[in-house]
Amino acid sequence: MAKKQVLGVFKTADNAVMAVDRLHESGFTNRDWQVLTGSPYPEGAFGEWMPKHRLYAFPFFGAIVGFTVAILVTAGTSVANPLVTGGKPIIAIPAMAVIVYEGTMLGAILMTIIGVIFESRLPRPVMGLYDTRITEGYIGIDLNCPDDRVNTAEMVMRQSGAVDVKHQK
């Protein structure tokens, strides 16, 4: 069955939550819709589905790469130019520690940036249904709905106080 997007626009968060409850009563699940807001609400405030992410893996991988590269650079340059400074060993841990720390952090952070872009699916290829009132504090419930249930979804949203309901053409 083909699916269509339906966007309900609500003036208050309470109406949006009521619509979500009624959609669930009508057989929709929280994987069928997402909430659009003009400012960030606490996670789970609308009972929305929280996608699992693997962001933690990115900095971990980056840190390992950064640490390895930093060790290779510091130890490698010390061995390549064996200059004894202050009677200390050629490969001296205190002198390497700062570069290794910076390298580890840099690797972790750069990979986290890549991870955030990947996990956030930024930039989005398509805009999808939208209403400009969302940046004025209105709440959007963006429902992914089978063709034959569009009318039901629209009715539920209007009964819950939607000020507008838009359909995908």
């Binding site: 997402q34 909430v35 659009l36 807001t37 003009g38 960030p40 609400y41 996670e43 929305e48 929280m50 996608p51 962001l55 910076e102 952090m105 840099l106 952070i109 750069l110 986290t112 940036i113 955030v116 872009i117 996990e119 956030s120 699916r121 930024l122 930039p123 989005r124 290829p125 398509v126 805009m127 999808g128 939208y130 969302i134 940046t135 959007g140 963006d142």
Partner: peptide, 30 residues
């Protein structure tokens, strides 16, 4: 062009600000 205010986008904005902030701090002192 494509910002709609989905939870995933908000999470992305906040996480990116944290990461860029940490990198900025690292760079600034350096």
């Amino acid at each position: 062009p494509k910002f709609r205010g989905t939870p995933r986008q908000w999470k992305g904005v906040k996480a990116m600000l944290m990461v860029l902030g940490a990198l900025y701090f690292l760079f600034l002192i350096g």
